[in-house]
Design a binder for these strands. Structure first.
Lengths: 134, 134
DNA sequence: GTTTTTACCTATTGACTTAGTGGGTAAATA
DNA sequence: TATTTACCCACTAAGTCAATAGGTAAAAAC
C-alpha cells in the first residue's frame, strides 16, 4: 500500500508543476491548496530536496521549485525516494541477503515478475502526464 | 509490500498442493518443512479455513487439506484473504468513503489503473502454476 | 538594521500494525 | 484412557505511520 508520504510527495510535485510559472511556491500555499498539514509536508519536501528533485529558497519571496521539466520526472523516482524500498517482498529488497531457500523457492519468480511489473508501471509514468493541461 | 502473512499463506497452500496425495497434512509437518513457527502458522491457517480455502481434521491422522484442485485457486484470492485489503491506496479501499477531492484528483486515475494491474496479475496466477510438477 | 517571511532542523508522541509467543480446550483416533 | 491433532483467546515487544512541537538560519522588505 502506498502511504501518505509518497502520495503527498506526488501531490506536492504536481502542485509545483502546475504553478511553475509563478516563481518559488511557499510550502504554506501548497499545504493550504492540498488541504494537508504544512508541518508534515516539511518532512516530505525535505526528502525531495535531499534527492535533488526540487530546490528551496529561503526568505521572503522564497519557496520551492522543480529542478527539471515535468516530463523529465518519472512517478517511480518520486515514490522510490519517499516511500523507501518499493520492493514487493522483503527477499527482493535492495541490500537484503539472499534467502537460503531462494533456489528452491516456488514463489520467488512470481514476486520478481510482480516487482518488475510495478516498477515498469511507475517508471513509465511521468509527472507531466498527471498535471492539468487545459 | 506483501507481508509474511500472505507469503506464508501461499507457501502453506503450495505445500498442501504438493502433498495432496498423502491425506491430511499436520501443521507441524508444514511448519518444519517451511522452516516457520507453527504457532504463527496457526493464525494464518485459521484464516484459510475461515475463508473456505482449506479444511482441517482434528485428532490423530488429522491435518489440513485443500478443498479444490490447485488450478482452481488464484493467488489473488489467497492474498486478498490473508493480507486484508490489497488496495493500492486508502482512497480505493473497499468501504472507504469517497474522497471529496476525487473529482479533481490528479492521481486517482493512476492509482485505479495500478490497482487493476496488480489485481489482474494475481487473479490470473493459479496455485497450480506455482507447484513443482517434475 | 530590524522585522517579516520563508526554509530548514531535531526531537517527541499516540495510535496502529507486524510477527510472533503462551497457555489453554475440543475433537478424533489408537 | 492416552495421544495427537485442530482450534481458540489473550498478550507482547518492536517497529512504522502520521503527524506535532519548538526551535534556528537565511533572505528579502521596510
Amino acid at each position: 500500500m502506498i502511504s501518505t508520504r509518497g502520495r503527498y510527495a506526488l501531490r506536492v510535485m504536481i502542485d509545483l508543476a502546475e504553478h511553475t510559472d509563478e516563481g518559488p511556491i511557499p510550502l504554506k500555499e501548497i499545504a493550504e491548496r492540498q488541504g494537508v498539514s504544512k508541518k508534515y509536508l516539511e518532512i516530505i519536501v525535505k526528502e525531495l530536496v535531499g534527492g535533488g528533485l526540487v530546490e528551496g529558497a529561503s526568505g521572503r519571496g522564497g519557496g520551492y521549485r522543480l529542478c527539471r521539466r515535468p516530463e523529465d520526472y518519472s512517478v517511480g523516482e518520486i515514490l522510490e525516494l519517499t516511500e523507501g524500498s518499493m520492493a514487493a517482498v522483503a527477499c527482493l529488497e535492495k541490500g537484503a541477503e539472499t534467502c537460503p531457500r531462494a533456489g528452491e523457492c516456488r514463489t520467488l519468480p512470481m514476486w520478481a515478475e510482480y516487482d518488475r511489473l510495478v516498477r515498469d508501471f511507475f517508471r513509465s509514468k511521468t509527472l507531466a502526464e498527471l498535471i492539468r493541461t487545459e
